[in-house]
Write a protein that binds this DNA or RNA. Sequence first.
DNA 1: TGTCAATATTGACGCATGTCGAAGTCGAAG
DNA 2: CTTCGACTTCGACATGCGTCAATATTGACA
Lengths: 119, 119
Amino acid sequence: MSKSKLTLTAAESVACCSPVLTDPMSEDRAERIAPLLKAIADPVRLRLLSPVAAHEGGEACVCDLNDAFELSQPTISHHLKVLHEVGLLDRSKRGVWVYYRVRSRALGDSATLLAGVGR
Amino acid sequence: MSKSKLTLTAAESVACCSPVLTDPMSEDRAERIAPLLKAIADPVRLRLLSPVAAHEGGEACVCDLNDAFELSQPTISHHLKVLHEVGLLDRSKRGVWVYYRVRSRALGDSATLLAGVGR
DNA sequence: TGTCAATATTGACGCATGTCGAAGTCGAAG
DNA sequence: CTTCGACTTCGACATGCGTCAATATTGACA
């Protein structure tokens, strides 16, 4: 990322500074991390992640995802937006189509975080 | 109840069968896992886990937790119940006091699951 | 320019959830 | 048996969230 950003996504807030272990998590940190977990904690969004990751080249077109779910197109669009906003999905528009890509680093960081909370 | 349970906690549903990797997560599985993640995806509950894990002997009394938060006692009790119901916290009553203990296995399993979704 | 197709946004609806005060339960100790 | 203290449950309130239909936007192409 060349340009300087002023705000961090939830995923980026997770990435740094690790030791959540024994000492209690600060209120501030919890408030920043919760949205990320909340984004994943939805059945539809959970199911959205793997098809994207599994697709050719690691990215999937929205149209493919629409077909794979029995939900309205706006609803899928909404969920993708949520995942994008917390930094779990990258978004790139090519022509009329929009492709999403999993930021596996962010996902891995949240997993690490989770593992660290309890031990 | 001494043994044989008919229903699994959300945490137990996560434990078995791993490969969420490339093939998409089934709707059924997603519906069972989401509540577990949803339970952790709250700032207060996130902050509740580490003090419990860090306490003497890995368990903490509700009274200790009440003092550590600026929330009403019923609210803390509610959050502990949520964490308990999804299988992340064990609950044992000794005398007048109630002690909660982190089931680190369950927490670890959800972390593993999360790591597996994106790659 | 105008039309069509792919996504996004808006607005509205109902349901879920976090919070509190008040009341209920359940041991322990007089 | 009565009282007290530690929790839990209940009822109510406000806010948040998933969903859809309708509408807007954007790019390709005739």
